[in-house]
């Protein structure tokens, strides 16, 4: 069953898939509770411009795209704060512009079409050993953020202005949360793809919050279900020769349906 691990690049992408499942799932509960799924959707599209720029300049995709996404996060926060505009509108605006810039940049490259679909839907052939280090560092960053600011994050997600009144550095926490989210997306996008990374950022959180109302437990369960989906999805895609990113999303969605069913049962039991 795991014979594919003998092939180097398949082994890399298998491990990368698991690592990316862990890192995105760590943030998933907060993304779900803070209702910023639009943000993950937008940031993944914004990272497209970063990827295009890296491809055109022949530089490291991870570095260029991370820096690009972080700059755009800064711009979103700056514009919405200083010009008193709705954050979601600014984000969506920059998402369209970034996609446009990305497509213009890629049109300068000859292999345009193949590259776009690779990044839109993920391509395991793009993964190399260095990505495994990147993803490991990312998991450590996520863990440090969550463990260092656990209470502050929860209060910020609960109610930003009330949290601020009670001297929780809610603005700082929001900036760090969005920056870390941006980094996760920029690095993981190669594996899952721009279109599908949002599912990986939302579904594990939604599934676990259907089953437990304790945030710490929800985070752990979210990682568990995301890794399980990643392994199952990968095996299925290898076995039936299907695109792995898409299969992982479908597996996650199946778990979501199961969690909905279980939630109903749990509620009935309580009553």
């Amino acid at each position: 069953m795991f014979s594919f691990l003998a092939i180097n690049f398949l082994m890399y992408s298998f491990i990368a898939g698991i690592l990316s499942a862990v890192s995105t799932a760590l943030l998933s509960v907060f993304v779900t509770l803070k209702k910023i799924s639009y943000m993950s959707e937008a940031l993944s599209h914004i990272s497209f411009a970063g990827i295009a720029l890296a491809l055109l300049l022949g530089l490291s995709i991870n570095i260029v795209s991370s820096i690009f996404v972080m700059i755009v996060v800064g711009v979103i926060l700056y514009i919405s704060l200083h010009y008193n505009l709705e954050e979601s509108n600014v984000t969506m605006l920059l998402m369209s512009v970034s996609m446009a810039i990305g497509i213009i940049l890629l049109s300068f490259k000859k292999s345009y079409v193949a590259d776009v679909s690779s990044y839109m839907f993920g391509n395991i052939l793009l993964i190399n050993k260095a990505d495994l280090y990147w993803l490991s560092v990312l998991i450590i960053i996520n863990l440090l953020f969550i463990m260092g600011f656990y209470r502050e994050i929860i209060y910020t997600v609960y109610h930003t202005s009330i949290a601020e009144f009670y001297h929780v550095p809610a603005k700082l926490i929001t900036v760090i949360l969005l920056t870390v989210l941006g980094l996760n997306i920029a690095i993981s996008v190669k594996i899952t793809g721009i279109v599908m990374i949002t599912a990986q950022l939302i579904l594990p959180g939604m599934i676990s919050l259907n089953l437990t109302r304790v945030i710490s437990k929800a985070i752990v369960f979210s990682v568990f279900v995301s890794v399980l989906s990643s392994i199952l999805g990968f095996l299925l895609s290898f076995h039936y020769n299907l695109p792995s990113g898409a299969v992982i999303v479908v597996v996650l969605f199946s778990f979501f349906l199961v969690s909905l069913f279980l939630k109903k049962l749990l509620i009935k039991e309580i009553q």
Binding site: R151, I154, Y155, H159, Y166, H167, T212, I215, A218
Partner: peptide, 23 residues
């Protein structure tokens, strides 16, 4: 104090928010 419906916060944790000052 409107919060997201079903926000999984315990009473004690909401009260502890009042102790965040000076941390």
């Amino acid at each position: 104090e409107a919060f997201t419906p079903n926000f999984p916060l315990k009473v004690i944790d909401l009260v502890l928010m009042g102790r965040m000052f000076g941390k």
